[in-house]
């Protein structure tokens, strides 16, 4: 890394510390709270308001920290002779890593001295659409199929893939998908002791928003890594490399749009299991 690039990296680090300290720890804006309430169709009350604000503050702090880390990682990986480097996948991966950490660190409702819990099973379909829940495993399958296509193309001589990079992207894509799924399951299991109905509604809304962000962000990251895998295919046919490059370019925008739409979609949590005399389908 050149001296100029190192200076840029130090500036990013200093700006990052400032941003996390001032913006990340500052008060949550009214607009942010309203946006959360609108997306989840949640009635914010005096009892559940602080609970939502704590969630928003935790996720914002960690996502900002992750974003700064991603920008720094992008700068560290700058090619020789480059002063400022913006690797979109590295920056997005940093943001998403922050989002993952935030979900692990979000507070759950406190237990009282006498422990009480509902016997209502928590199912993914209460918090996200079936499409959203299936998205991360589906993208993992797409990554594996792309890996298989790369291997076949290599065998048949249609392409000369760079296996060092292709293996790395494929391994990362599968690892991200597995990690996201594990954290999604942990979010579903996050403790929900018995509390007032509006507090439970806020807890369900938080769970739903977490699962949306993990599904949208996780699927997008897996697909970005899959596009990297596709970019390392290096087809031998004349003009094929341009076709792959065009596909990757279109894919980047399509994946970013998909991730954003899923992560920000509205979905009020549903509670079909409240009355166990009419149990929800298994």
């Amino acid at each position: 890394m050149s001296e100029a690039a190192t200076v840029v990296l130090l500036l990013i680090a200093a700006f990052g510390v400032f941003l996390v300290d001032v913006y990340g720890r500052g008060p949550v804006s009214r607009q942010r709270l309203d946006r959360f309430a609108r997306r989840q169709q949640l009635r914010v009350t005096a009892d559940n308001g602080n609970q939502v604000i704590r969630y928003l503050a935790t996720t914002r702090r960690w996502r900002v920290a992750g974003l700064i880390g991603g920008i720094a990682a992008s700068q560290i990986g700058a090619p020789a002779g480059t002063i400022v480097n913006f690797n979109f996948v590295a920056i997005f991966a940093g943001w998403f890593l922050g989002a993952l950490v935030a979900e692990v660190r979000v507070d759950h409702l406190a237990h009282g001295r006498v422990r009480a819990a509902s016997l209502r099973p928590r199912r993914p379909e209460q918090y996200v659409r079936p499409f959203t829940w299936a998205l991360v495993p589906a993208t993992a399958v797409i990554a594996l199929v792309t890996g298989a296509i790369t291997a076949v193309a290599d065998r048949t001589g249609w392409a000369e893939p760079n296996w060092a990079w292709a293996g790395l992207w494929l391994g990362l894509a599968v690892a991200v998908a597995v990690t996201v799924r594990l954290i999604q399951r942990a979010v579903l299991r996050r403790a929900q002791p018995v509390a007032a109905p509006d507090v439970i509604e806020a807890d369900d809304a938080i769970r739903s928003r977490s699962l949306h962000v993990l599904s949208g962000g996780g699927a997008a990251l897996v697909l970005f890594l899959t596009l990297n895998l596709l970019a390392s295919l290096r087809p031998t046919a004349v003009g094929a490399q341009q076709v792959v490059a065009a596909l990757v370019l279109i894919g980047v925008f399509a994946v970013a749009l998909l991730g954003w739409l899923v992560a920000t979609s509205m979905w009020p949590p549903r509670r079909p299991g409240t009355d166990l005399a009419n149990p929800a389908p298994a």
Partner: peptide, 29 residues
């Protein structure tokens, strides 16, 4: 308590119970 609820019909036949991990987390056990 679960036996009592089954006997009383509060938990009817076929009603799903939460997973062990969910109930343990919710009860802090």
């Amino acid at each position: 308590q679960i036996v009592t609820m089954i006997e009383a019909g509060t938990l009817p036949a076929g009603a799903q119970l939460p997973t062990i991990r969910q109930l343990a987390a919710d009860l802090g056990l």
